[in-house]
Design a protein around this nucleic acid. Structure first.
Lengths: 114, 114
DNA sequence: ATATTCTATTCAGGATTCGGAATATTGAAT
DNA sequence: ATTCAATATTCCGAATCCTGAATAGAATAT
């Protein structure tokens, strides 16, 4: 007999507009918190909360790199098809370099200035 | 810009063990309430409630046939792939004819007996 | 009309979640 | 040691959800 409890937990963690948007960002690759802050236009503490929910559900994991903490999808093999089914296939037109964002991914051009 | 609200609503309706189990039954075809009652081993009012939740979210719809009300998936084209991604592909080994069930699908052999 | 069967709704308590504000922690730089 | 920047956690009132019990409705048969 199947369990359904584990799957329900996953879906529950996904069933939130902000968290879905975060997952939509992360299926393009890992990102730091400050990037999501710029992308979502929400406060950092709020985003951290939603990330904690996703982490507790086992959907995402994080790694630290200096000051930044990068988040990424935990089980891409099962999660990516699910996100494709929910959000539609990935459109590469969506750009990763946000205007106002200064995270290492968006503004890596700060080497030699003066 | 994408909305994420509609998808979150759908996922939220799915994010419950009993409702997932109901959807798992319905992806094999329509079934009446009394069938699910036998399949899930829960009370009828409880099942009706969960079905109402699924109906309000637009995941299932129903039709009446005499005394029985049959439920079926509402948008199979988008819902079936999603359920496949969540629950795994359909295994036809799971039988539809429950032992204790007397619904028209399970016990249609009441024509000529004596 | 009445009874029976199948399904739907309402109700109420307890439990859980939501969302924002405030605060804490962690690592790097000076 | 101190300061700063990035991220994490805690707290709390409000809102929502869960779930079983009771009740209501709808269709059929007698």
């Amino acid at each position: 007999m199947m369990d359904y409890t584990q799957q329900a937990q996953w879906l529950k963690a996904m069933a939130h507009p902000t968290r879905l948007e975060i997952l939509d960002i992360l299926r393009r690759g890992e990102e730091c918190v400050c990037h999501m802050e710029a992308a979502l236009g929400k406060r950092q503490s709020y985003i951290s909360q939603q990330l904690m929910t996703l982490r507790d559900a086992g959907l995402v994991d994080s790694r630290r790199d200096g000051l930044n903490v990068f988040y990424f999808l935990c089980a891409p093999d099962t999660l990516l098809p699910l996100l494709d089914a929910v959000l539609g296939p990935l459109d590469d037109a969506a750009r990763r370099h946000l205007p106002g964002c200064v995270c290492p991914h968006c503004a890596p051009v700060a080497v030699a200035s003066s």
